[in-house]
């Protein structure tokens, strides 16, 4: 009798590890044998298992699919506004797995087309502007400026309109941000010409 109480006390130390199946082989066996004979320890093990299961009751509801899209837009905008400019298009060499078999050319053609549009608008923009203004504006990267549209944090009324607005801002930024290298050379040539 006395021995059994001592035993339960000792066994209790190991019950949680037993539940997790983390006892060394021999000890796992000792506890298992004890549990077969001892109802109170068995109940204790059961109560831990049930507690763990009760926690599952707090299952997290799955948000609607559009939530993930909207969140991404907010994160992207927040990141661009606060941290660093992201590349507007996939950069550099595509990963090996993309290069040969899985290439879907359509988006690449799209990217090329976008690039042409961007270059064209960059040239157009730089020719239309006066050189002094270019000198003042061009070297600054526009996307480093804080964007007023963006709020990071709570925004329960994230409407489709804001979506569109952000896309417009982004499209503008794509054209404006990529102006740098080209306009720089144009600008230099013009400044050179102005000096003469």
């Amino acid at each position: 009798m006395n021995e059994k109480i001592m035993n339960c006390f000792e066994i209790e130390e190991h019950l949680l590890d037993y539940v997790d199946n983390e006892l060394a082989g021999s000890m796992q066996q000792v506890v298992a044998e004890h549990l077969q004979a001892c109802l109170s320890c068995r109940k204790e093990v059961e109560s831990y298992r049930k507690t763990a299961m009760l926690l599952q009751l707090r299952a997290v509801p799955e948000p609607p699919e559009r939530y993930w899209d909207e969140s991404w837009e907010k994160i992207r905008a927040g990141f661009k506004a606060r941290v660093l400019p992201l590349a507007e298009k996939p950069l550099g060499v595509p990963p090996r797995s993309l290069r040969l078999q899985h290439v879907n050319w359509r988006p690449l053609v799209g990217v090329a087309a976008m690039f042409c549009i961007i270059v064209a608008s960059a040239l157009l923009w730089s020719w239309q502007s006066r050189s002094r203004e270019i000198a003042a504006v061009a070297p600054q990267r526009i996307y480093m400026n804080p964007t007023p549209v963006v709020t990071v944090g709570r925004d329960d009324n994230f409407s489709d309109d804001m979506y569109r607005q952000m896309e417009l801002v982004d499209a503008g930024r794509a054209a404006f941000g990529s102006i740098d290298p080209i306009s720089k050379s144009v600008m230099l040539v013009r400044l050179e010409a102005d000096r003469k």
């Binding site: 992201l86 590349a87 996939p90 550099g92 797995s97 988006p107």
Partner: peptide
């Protein structure tokens, strides 16, 4: 297309600033 890439590739691309990898 990026969805099928292993995480290590995505991380490398993202470290280069690739928005789609992000």
């Amino acid at each position: 297309q990026y969805a099928g890439l292993p995480e290590s590739d995505l991380i490398t691309l993202a470290q280069q600033g690739d928005e789609f990898a992000f």
